[in-house]
Design a binder for these strands. Structure first.
Length: 922
DNA sequence: AGGTCAACGTA
DNA sequence: CGTACGTTGACCTT
């Protein structure tokens, strides 16, 4: 079945969605169903959530507790979905003192201080509400319940149906035919509807008498004592008998028995209770019920907030429950007309769109070196699209497609161009002319996110759901087996259209951030370089790797046996839990640093324990750790060797928030080098057949040089210009001795501090690392800064500026936004400050080597050399050099790396060559 | 099956 | 109480 194409679609959903939203946000027309107002006691519900959900299960990776935010938002989501309110507001208490505490200082006096982890979450809840455009109402001196009571009363008078969600039973007095209280039974997920009947069933009196009953019985949580010996039963009986509290008071002298006596003894308290538990319904408020219509959400802000809270599933649920959204057709969001082309018609279709940027979507396998593409959709900016099955494509169409794809002057927008490159190259369809990559563009806009998948970007920037078909080639290893069926084509076309449309929106966002060139001139061309590097792979010596595996395996066995002998039993040495048992219970060793699951057994602590106890078990355990990790690394590499005898890593371009690349599958950026045994592994990376040697080139002290440049510190700049050893030079200034009298101990201290500065190292941290007193570390840092004052000024300046602008920027203008710089939470704020210190330095270094890679690739191509880039390890490039090209390649690499940017300090590059990575290293 | 943690490798 | 990553096995939950 050739060229089966999807049918024409005429879905026009955008207008529908807008309509739905507008309807929801306006007051309902008269004669329609009555407006439904939802009023939430923010504080009491959040507080309930806080205690209902274990905080240890609800925190972000930065340590911010989120259990109250999660519970509150989850509760809100559920109510929105269940009740579909047309109007909505949340009330908060303001401070602890109110007119009630003035009247009765003991009011709520038994309550503990609100826990800090809870208080820190209230601003986050307000942030969530703000992005949802939910009015937050509060009034000094009054409680949230008074606000709710006032609004409920006003709303009822205006003919609205009212839901009051509160964890405070006092709200029951508001219940009537138009006002229902949603009261949490257990935690925050189960709410019971308190209607007049429900109140009567539970308390034996109607809601209008609930306050009387509560006054008699008391309310422990408010610290309002009731009448001793009088429970809800007796209270209800009296209310039924005497009508209301006034009736009871009037009849008090005649009430018999112990309860009667007790009542008479506590009349004052009862009257006070009644006065305090009465909710005010006549507060003056800035907003009335009519002002509380549900508003369209600030979706982009919500995504930002939910990203930072790391609520992925909850976000989906919340969007699904969005008011008005439910009315929109589910299939909405794919305004694409998929053209039915006659066989051979693609060339005409493309020609009719010559010069226009077309969005494309590639389906296929993206394994570097062995990719394949089997589906391709192309969409224009008018949402006309074609979707092609590449496995059955008409030869004329295939030729037209190949020509268009390879035409560098035919502009294309792609989501994940490097992945598309692998898939298409595998099918013999090289791609050129990519002028926009929505994935990379989104990354440049918000580099702190973990993924930039197309459906999320669609929701976020196009405000449109992208119904999921099979994933595009952008998702690693995705296999699409259901090529048949027009749905597949429709989805593919919708993705292509979304890519095209997103490229416009994101281009604007990039321009706002001054990052247009960063994408067009750096990241986009780099994708081709990276794709080629991944495609080439690096040759591996498999036989040698197998030998290493055997060697390390033998070491693992030996170490394990010896360890078992010492303790007289076999345990799983890889289990921290079992190790803790052996070390601290069986062997009774001193406790190490505390971690979540007990006490750490990390290498530093074990080494420390060994120094103190000399226990042989520790030595064997450490040897086992080393050997097992080396074996693991070798085994991982062996598994990664492809059929061509080479290892093809994937360089991720949109992961590291600083702008660095990362390497996965396998990670070739963390191959051991520090220990001799580890370095053996580098011997397995060898020059491939047909090539003469490997060449490595690395920047020396790139981050310190960038710090020198950015800070403009004359001392540090002179240090680099002098050509002397950096740490000796700095050490001589800090310790006031001649350069040749800087001892190795002094030098290593200086080295640690210099590097630490770029990470926001504290004197405490420095003292830890150097095993010196904090005072000495502080003095060391003071001495350093007294000689290199420009560095200190720069470091404080960079944080100040980031706080003011909201972001840091690298030499190439790459931004990282750090909203936590103004956080109330000290831990988060200080973390953000360290990120702000480091991001410009690490990020500028990343910029430089990317520029250098483009230059190297360009020169090698321009000169027709066969030598080629293989790997990048942050400040190092690894190349495979063709016979006879070594000198020229070295010159190119030195020149391109050295001139990647014009800094106030030279960019030194050291180069090594050899048959393996180990030998080429230095 | 899927997610998180501790541990540890790199720059 | 030092930044940026990725991978692994153990452990726990679904």
């Amino acid at each position: 079945m050739a060229d089966r194409l999807a049918p024409v679609s005429d879905v026009q959903p955008t207008a529908d969605q807008t309509t739905a939203l507008d309807t929801a946000s306006a007051a309902p027309p008269s004669g329609a169903a009555p407006a439904r107002l939802l009023l939430i006691d923010g504080h009491s519900m959040a507080y309930r959530a806080y205690f209902a959900l274990p905080v240890e299960n609800f925190s972000t990776s930065t340590g911010q507790p989120t259990n109250a935010v999660y519970g509150f938002t989850s509760m809100l989501t559920k109510i929105l979905a269940d009740e579909q309110p047309t109007h909505l507001a949340v009330a908060f208490d303001m401070g602890r003192t109110t007119f009630r505490t003035e009247r009765y200082p003991e009011y709520k006096g038994t309550r503990d201080e609100t826990p800090q982890p809870f208080r820190g979450q209230v601003p986050l809840i307000r942030e969530v509400l703000e992005t949802m455009r939910v009015p937050v109402i509060e009034r000094e001196n009054y409680e949230a319940d008074d606000v709710l009571a006032t609004l409920a009363t006003q709303a009822r008078a205006a003919g609205m149906q009212v839901l009051v969600c509160s964890g405070d039973r006092d709200a029951f007095q508001l219940v009537n035919d138009d006002v229902t209280v949603l009261y949490p039974i257990r935690g925050v997920s189960e709410l019971t509807r308190m209607t007049p009947d429900a109140v009567r069933a539970k308390y034996g009196v109607g809601p209008e008498r609930y306050s009387d009953l509560a006054a008699l019985v008391g309310e422990t949580s408010d610290n309002l004592p009731g009448i001793p010996g009088v429970g809800p039963k007796t209270a209800a009986k009296w209310i039924t008998a005497y009508g209301d509290l006034d009736g009871i008071i009037a009849a008090a002298p005649d009430i018999k028995g112990k309860a009667g006596e007790s009542l008479r003894a506590h009349l004052d308290q009862v009257v006070l209770n009644r006065e305090l538990n009465h909710l005010l319904t006549d507060l003056e408020l800035p907003l009335g019920p009519a002002d509380l219509a549900v508003q369209p959400w600030d979706r982009e802000a919500m995504h930002r907030v939910f990203d930072s809270l790391q609520f992925t599933a909850l976000r989906e649920r919340l969007f699904a429950a969005m008011p008005g959204e439910a009315a929109a057709p589910v299939e909405a969001g794919e305004p694409v007309d998929v053209a039915e082309l006659a066989p051979g018609g693609l060339g005409g279709w493309l020609a009719a769109r010559a010069g226009r940027t077309l969005g494309i979507d590639v389906r296929g396998a993206i394994r570097p070196g062995s990719g394949d593409a089997w589906g391709l959709a192309i969409a224009d900016d008018g949402a006309a699209a074609v979707s092609l099955d590449l496995t059955t494509i008409d030869p004329r169409d295939e030729a037209a497609l190949a020509a268009w794809l390879a035409d560098a002057s035919a502009p294309k927008a792609v989501h994940g161009a490097k992945s598309a490159w692998h898939a298409l190259t595998g099918r013999g369809l090289p791609i050129a002319g990519v002028v926009f990559d929505t994935e990379v563009a989104a990354y440049l806009c918000h580099p702190d996110q973990r993924s930039y998948d197309l459906p999320s970007l669609s929701v976020r920037y196009l405000h449109r759901e992208l119904t999921s078909g099979a994933p595009a080639a952008g998702s690693q290893g995705a296999l699409d087996l259901s090529l048949d069926g027009s749905d597949e084509h429709q989805h593919a076309a919708a993705r292509a259209a979304a890519v095209g449309e997103l490229s416009g929106v994101l281009a604007d966002a990039l321009a706002d951030r001054g990052a247009t060139d960063l994408l067009a001139r750096l990241e986009l061309p780099l994708e081709d370089v990276l794709a080629a590097m991944e495609h080439r792979g690096v040759a591996a010596d498999v036989d040698y790797l197998r030998e290493l595996e055997k060697l390390f395996d033998a070491q693992v066995q030996t170490a394990a046996t010896e360890a078992y002998d010492v303790i007289g039993r076999e345990v799983n040495l890889g289990s921290p839990k079992q190790l803790q048992e052996v070390l601290f219970d069986q062997l009774g060793m001193p406790k190490t640093k505390k971690i979540k699951t007990g006490y750490t057994t990390d290498a530093a602590s074990l080494a420390d324990l060994y120094a103190r106890t000399q226990h042989p078990f520790l030595a064997h355990l450490l040897a086992h750790r080393d050997a097992i990790r080396l074996r693991q690394t070798v085994e991982g590499l062996l598994r990664s060797v492809a059929d061509d005898g080479r290892i093809h890593t994937t360089f991720q371009q949109t992961i590291a928030a600083t702008g660095r690349l990362s390497s996965t599958d396998p990670n070739l950026q963390n191959i051991p080098i520090r220990t001799e045994a580890g370095r053996q592994i580098r011997r397995a990376f060898v020059v491939g057949e047909g090539y003469e040697t490997l060449l490595t080139a690395d920047y020396s002290q790139i981050e310190m040089r960038i710090m020198a440049h950015l800070s403009g510190d004359e001392g540090l700049i002179d240090a680099f210009r002098s050509g002397e050893d950096l740490h000796n030079y700095v050490g001589s200034r800090v310790f006031s001795v001649p350069t040749d009298q800087v001892t190795p101990a002094m030098r290593s201290k200086i080295k640690a501090m210099s590097y630490g500065l770029a990470y926001g190292l504290s004197s405490f941290g420095l003292s830890k690392q150097l095993s010196i007193e904090v005072g000495e570390a502080t003095r060391l840092m003071d001495d350093y800064f007294s000689r290199f004052g420009g560095v200190r000024a720069y470091l404080t300046g960079v944080v100040d500026e980031a706080r003011a602008t909201g972001y840091t920027a690298t030499i190439m203008g790459r931004r990282r936004y750090l909203p936590d710089l103004t956080s109330d939470n000290r831990q988060r704020r200080e973390m953000a400050e360290r990120m702000a210190l480091n991001a410009p330095i690490q990020g500028s270094a990343a910029d430089l080597i990317k520029v250098a890679m483009l230059g190297v690739e360009r020169e090698l191509t321009a000169r027709g050399l066969r030598s080629r880039l293989l790997l990048q390890v942050h400040d190092e490039l690894v190349l495979e050099v063709a016979p006879g090209e070594r000198e020229e390649v070295e010159a190119i690499v030195r020149a391109q790396m050295g001139s990647a940017a014009a800094l106030d300090v030279p960019l030194d590059v050291s180069v090594g060559v050899g048959a393996s990575w180990h030998e080429a290293g230095h």
